[in-house]
Design a protein around this nucleic acid. Structure first.
Lengths: 111, 111
DNA sequence: TACCGGTAGATAGCAACACTGAATAGCGCG
DNA sequence: CGCGCTATTCAGTGTTGCTATCTACCGGTA
């Protein structure tokens, strides 16, 4: 993966995952697959699992164990109200940053 | 600073600074001031200087020492062609990421 | 039985990067 | 001379994504 992308994902991947499970609760393996479908082809499972552990420990998500037909039980994550607040905060930060960066993008010709 | 913002700046601050000096060559102290003016109120000098050292070592910028009327000589950074290529790459990564994230943003209501 | 591939999760170690906090240095002014 | 402003540097810290590997459960097949 482009190094640029790797670094950009730091701090945004968390929001991306939270937004993903906000749309629809999901388990780790599934989340990775969804991200891949959405274009993040190089996202690695290990990365997602580690992230999920973090947001669980911070109390942003609720976890339910659901037996799977194939393989070990799934840990299904769903956004709780703390997570929802945190996600709102994420969007505020994102909007702020995206705005300034788009400005820089359009300034390409002089001031 | 909000932790979200701190993490989001990883990987983007570098592009922001490169884009800034692409518009107009500048020295560290000045860049910090510009960023502050543009809304990044909490950016710390130490952060910017460390970043400038990195991009200089990677050969993305040319450096000229310019005597200052007040204080030690300024190190004026300007984007060279390698930096310009790198900045293009940054914009590609940024556009990709921003596109997916905006999509998630608008999906707020079901699929 | 024994093995393999796909599903599902966990973990240790690493590198990159922004932040904190402080130190250093040059200059003008009272 | 000491103070404040300009300007740069640096050591140490914490977070985060990646690499690589390991465990575990299941169905199919030889």
């Amino acid at each position: 993966m482009a190094k640029q992308m790797t670094e950009m994902l730091k701090g945004t991947l968390e929001g991306i995952v939270l937004a993903t499970i906000a749309r629809q609760p999901a388990y780790g393996y599934e989340i990775t697959a969804r991200l891949r479908d959405e274009g993040f082809a190089d996202i690695v499972e290990g990365t997602v699992y580690a992230l999920l552990v973090r947001i669980e420990q911070r109390g942003l998500v609720d976890v339910t164990k659901v037996p799977s037909e194939k393989g070990p039980p799934r840990k299904v994550y769903s956004l709780n109200s703390a997570g929802s607040d945190y996600l709102d905060e994420f969007w505020r930060s994102w909007n702020f940053l995206a705005e300034r960066i788009e400005q820089l993008h359009h300034y390409r010709e002089g001031e």
